[in-house]
């Protein structure tokens, strides 16, 4: 394990100066349990990094530490050249850390359009004042409505823009979750199991959206995913967490075949490699 760890650190630090997102000794403990333990790595533009690991490895907690939902007990989070560790969730979001959630997390009583528009509005200063506008009528902002409609069109949801979110199918809600992240237009996209709970025919739709994002933008994309076929298909790089520690980091083929991942993921060394692939 130590060999692998040092290998991962050298990978991360090689291009640290150009990194869009960096975590330095980032960690948190709950009581005596160290959920994330001094994770240092960096993420670059134009690459999709999959963060994998068995249940309880600390993947979502690591995401929460980056986006600010959980305060770190140690370490730092850097976005480009700015230390954002002390910033709140909303401040980090406005700086460019966009997060989609493992469990669908929308505004159920508002319409599909309103959900997207709220995100677009939040990101815009100028005359939209990040939503601090008490007097203009909501439906007067034609530019925001048009922008939100365009985003919904790009995810094939334009026909549902007036529907309350609570009435959408689970698959459409997951699609909307991705659309909200697109509406944020963040520097870093963070997807936490975007295909969780979706039926087999709905999964490709969401994966295509992420693939499009990867192909057509030069953004940093982080993806927590359990399904290894999805990871193999999309990832340019894999980071493996185990018991809160970063245990492997590198090219997908190399990481998936490494003994440390076989042991961490399947509890076996070498023999079960086929199962993982």
């Amino acid at each position: 394990m130590p060999a692998s760890r040092s290998e991962s650190v050298s990978y991360s630090n090689a291009n640290a100066s150009q990194a869009i997102l960096r975590t330095v000794d980032l960690g948190v403990s709950f009581g005596g349990h160290q959920a994330v333990n001094a994770v240092s790595t960096s993420f670059h533009g134009g690459a999709l990094t999959a963060i994998v690991g068995p249940n309880g490895a600390g993947k979502t907690t690591y995401f929460n530490l980056i986006s600010g939902q959980i305060a770190a007990s140690q370490g730092e989070v850097w976005l480009s050249s700015e230390n954002v560790t002390a910033l709140s969730v909303s401040q980090r979001a406005r700086k460019g850390l966009g997060r989609a959630f493992q469990l669908t997390n929308l505004f159920p009583r508002l319409s599909v359009l309103e959900n997207i528009r709220l995100v677009a509005q939040s990101m815009q200063s100028g005359r939209h004042h990040h939503g601090f506008d008490f007097w203009r009528i909501w439906s007067d902002a034609a530019d925001l409505i048009e922008h939100a409609t365009d985003i919904l069109r790009s995810v094939s949801m334009a026909a549902q823009l007036g529907d309350p979110v609570a009435t959408l199918s689970h698959g459409d809600q997951r699609k909307l979750e991705v659309a909200m992240l697109i509406a944020m237009n963040p520097t870093v996209y963070m997807f936490d199991e975007p295909t969780a709970g979706m039926s087999a025919d709905e999964v490709p739709v969401v994966l295509d959206l992420i693939r499009d994002l990867k192909t057509h933008s030069h953004k940093t994309i982080l993806l927590v995913e359990h399904k290894m076929d999805v990871v193999r298909d999309l990832a340019d790089r894999i980071v493996v967490l185990h018991n809160g520690q970063l245990v492997a980091d590198g090219e997908p083929a190399e990481v998936i075949n490494s003994d440390i991942v076989q042991e961490a993921y399947l509890g076996t060394r070498g023999g079960a490699r086929r199962g993982l692939m």
Binding site: S67, Q69, S88, V89, S90, Q91, A93, R94, R99, F101, N105, L106, F107, L118, V119, S122, M123, H130, G131, M180, M184
Partner: peptide
């Protein structure tokens, strides 16, 4: 929770 995550304090 989500309102905060999309940038609203």
């Amino acid at each position: 929770f989500r309102a905060e995550a999309i940038g609203y304090p």
